[in-house]
């Protein structure tokens, strides 16, 4: 399978920072994978995703999405990507439907296709009844669902999810996870960051643990557990590799 994303010796340091956010990261994720990019706070997950979706430029190294080099061919890459940021990146005075229609239009969708797609997603995520209420009146779980729906509107080939289930109830998380599995089964590559190790272990077929901007281990959950027989779970492996020292 060709690589959906590939980085080679990627390096990024923010002005005034003590050390690099991404420090020579080399990574390759094949198309169709459900890949978990895990790491403690400040490990470089969000920075890596930001470089891959064109929000940031790397200081050095190479980054590619579906064979397109970044940042040179970012315009070819953008339509292929769906990005779901960690923040609830919505207009809270607009309704869910208005948010979907606006962001859909910004993806280049229009007319009936857009309204139908919005209605479809609202139904799929159980928000039809509240679709015309302002987002600011929603619960945390509902907002997360709309946040995810926006990233899915245009049917992207690669979906970047930055902690999509943080701070929500069990029901919402279960719904989101089920949908993501279905999406992946239909061929969408998912690159996912999370602090929920159990969730990552259950969902992902590939895991990369990064710390201080470097990839420290990679493999399927099964491979990682086999290689670390002293650990009972992915969380144990994570703590073993990244340490128990508190991060900011």
């Amino acid at each position: 399978m060709p690589a959906a994303i590939r980085t080679d010796h990627l390096f990024k340091i923010y002005p005034g920072a003590d050390g690099p956010a991404v420090d020579g990261l080399s990574l390759s994720v094949e198309e169709g994978r459900f890949y978990g990019l895990l790491g403690p706070n400040g490990a470089g997950k969000t920075t890596t995703l930001s470089i891959l979706c064109g929000l940031l430029n790397a200081d050095s190294g190479e980054a590619e999405v579906m064979g397109h080099s970044l940042p040179q061919h970012i315009d070819h890459v953008k339509p292929l990507l769906g990005v779901v940021p960690q923040d609830i990146a919505l207009y809270d005075t607009l309704t869910a439907r208005e948010n979907l229609v606006f962001f859909g239009a910004m993806y280049g969708m229009k007319g009936k296709t857009l309204t139908q797609r919005a209605t479809e997603l609202l139904e799929e995520f159980g928000l039809t009844e509240k679709a015309d209420k302002a987002v600011r009146t929603y619960s945390g779980g509902m907002k997360r669902r709309v946040n995810l729906m926006v990233g899915l509107l245009h049917g992207p080939r690669i979906l970047f999810l930055d902690e999509p289930t943080v701070g929500i109830d069990v029901q919402s998380r279960a719904m989101i996870n089920a949908y993501l599995q279905k999406l992946n089964a239909n061929g969408t590559t998912i690159i996912y960051t999370s602090h929920h190790m159990d969730e990552a272990e259950r969902l992902c077929d590939g895991i990369g643990i990064i710390d201080r901007g470097r990839l420290i281990v990679e493999g399927s959950p099964k491979e990682l557990l086999s290689a670390n027989t002293d650990c009972n779970s992915l969380e144990d492996i994570f703590l073993k590799l990244t340490g128990k020292q508190l991060r900011d």
Binding site: C53, G54, L55, D75, K78, P79, L81, V83, P85, Q86, D87, I88, A89, L90, Y91, D92, F103, M106, Y107, G108, V150
Partner: peptide, 12 residues
């Protein structure tokens, strides 16, 4: 809120 970043990763 991150909507600006969201817009920046879209084609617009």
């Amino acid at each position: 809120s991150g909507t600006m970043q969201r817009l920046r990763v879209m084609s617009g």
